[in-house]
Amino acid sequence: MIKSWIGIACLCLTLGGCSTQVTRVDPEETIDLSGTWNDTDSRLVSEEMIQDALSRPWISNFVRDNGHPPAVIVGAVRNLSHEHINVNTFVADLERALVNSGQVDFVASSVDRKEIREERIEQDLNAREDTRNAAGQEIGADFMLKGQINTILDTEARKQVRYYQVDLTMISMADNRKVWLGQKKIKKLVKDGSVRP
C-alpha cells in the first residue's frame, strides 16, 4: 500500500508539461482547436463573399451607367458576436480580390485618409515641387461596404452549438441603395472534453 501511495504521490508531484513543439502547416489546412472563430472561418467567409460580390450585377450596372469602375470605401464591420473576432482579415481578403479583379477600386478608409492627408501636408512643406502630390485630388467613394457578425450559441453541459452569420452590405453613397448583400453562415458543434491529464 505504501508503495502505491508513494507512487501516486510522486506521480502527482512530477506531472509537468512537455517542451514546446512547432510544426509548420499549410495555411489552407483546417485545424480546429477550441471551436471558436479561427483562420478557416475567416477564409470561408472571404471566399464566399468574393465569389458572390464578383458574380452579382452591381459592378456591371455601375460601369454601364458611369463608364468607370466603382470606387468602394470600407465602413464599419461590427462584431456583434460572442467572440473577439478580427474582421479585418476577411475584409482585407475581399478588398484584395475585388481590386485584383480590376473591376472595383478601393479608396482609403477614414483612418487611413487622415494619415495620408497629414503626409500630403508634410510633402507640401518638405518635398521637392515636382514630386509633391496636390490636395483635392482624391476620388470620392461610390459605395460603402458595411457589415456585421452575429452569433447564436446554444449550450448544454459540455456541448455547444455555435452559429455564426456574417452579413456584408454594399451601400450606394449617391442614394443609400443597397446594391449587394453578402451572407455567410457557419455552424459548429463543439464538445468540451470532460477529462484532462
Binding site: L11, C12, G193, S194, V195, P197
Partner: peptide, 18 residues
Amino acid sequence: LKQMQAISISENLGAATI
C-alpha cells in the same frame, strides 16, 4: 479556468492521497 473545469484523474488522486 475553462480548461480546468474538466476532471483530472491524477489531480483527484493527488487530492485523495496528499
